[in-house]
Computed example of a mutant assay.
Amino acid sequence: MADITWEDPFCAEGNNCFRIGTDSAGNAHIAVAGQEEHHLTDSRDALRALILEIKAGKADHLL
């Protein structure tokens, strides 16, 4: 398993906190804070695209 470097948690008001991490193999990881052992892994570009879409409001219907 790759050694993941986790960023500080991102917490939205009244919601779960998420953590984003990267590894030396070029992968990006996202997890609920405190549950990092159950993370999703994809490319950094895919994670960047996901974050940009969320910021653009394209995932509000999922919340």
Rank of each mutant, 00 (worst) to 15 (best):
M1T: 11
A2Q: 06
A2I: 04
A2S: 09
I4T: 07
I4H: 01
T5D: 09
W6G: 08
W6N: 04
W6E: 02
E7G: 09
E7L: 11
D8V: 14
D8A: 15
D8W: 12
P9M: 06
F10Y: 12
F10P: 01
F10Q: 09
C11S: 14
C11Q: 11
E13P: 07
E13R: 13
G14A: 07
G14H: 10
G14Q: 06
G14R: 08
N15C: 07
N15S: 14
N15V: 08
C17T: 08
C17Q: 11
C17V: 10
C17M: 08
C17D: 11
F18V: 15
R19C: 00
R19I: 05
R19N: 02
I20W: 00
I20Q: 02
G21A: 03
G21V: 02
T22E: 05
D23T: 05
S24K: 03
S24L: 03
A25R: 09
G26C: 04
G26L: 06
N27R: 04
N27G: 05
A28H: 01
A28N: 04
H29A: 10
H29Q: 08
H29E: 12
H29C: 01
I30F: 13
A31S: 14
V32K: 08
A33P: 04
A33Y: 05
A33V: 07
G34A: 07
G34H: 07
G34D: 05
G34L: 08
Q35R: 12
E37G: 14
E37C: 15
E37V: 15
E37L: 15
H38E: 10
H38K: 11
H38A: 14
H39T: 11
L40Q: 09
T41L: 01
T41V: 10
T41K: 02
T41R: 02
D42F: 00
D42S: 11
S43L: 08
R44P: 05
D45N: 04
D45H: 01
L47F: 05
L47I: 06
A49I: 03
A49Y: 02
L50K: 01
L50P: 06
L50R: 04
I51E: 01
I51K: 00
L52G: 12
E53W: 15
I54G: 05
I54T: 06
I54M: 12
K55W: 06
K55M: 07
K55Y: 08
A56K: 15
A56W: 15
A56G: 12
A56R: 15
G57F: 09
K58P: 04
K58D: 06
K58E: 03
A59V: 05
A59F: 10
A59L: 11
A59S: 11
H61N: 13
L63M: 00
L63C: 00
L63D: 04
L63N: 02
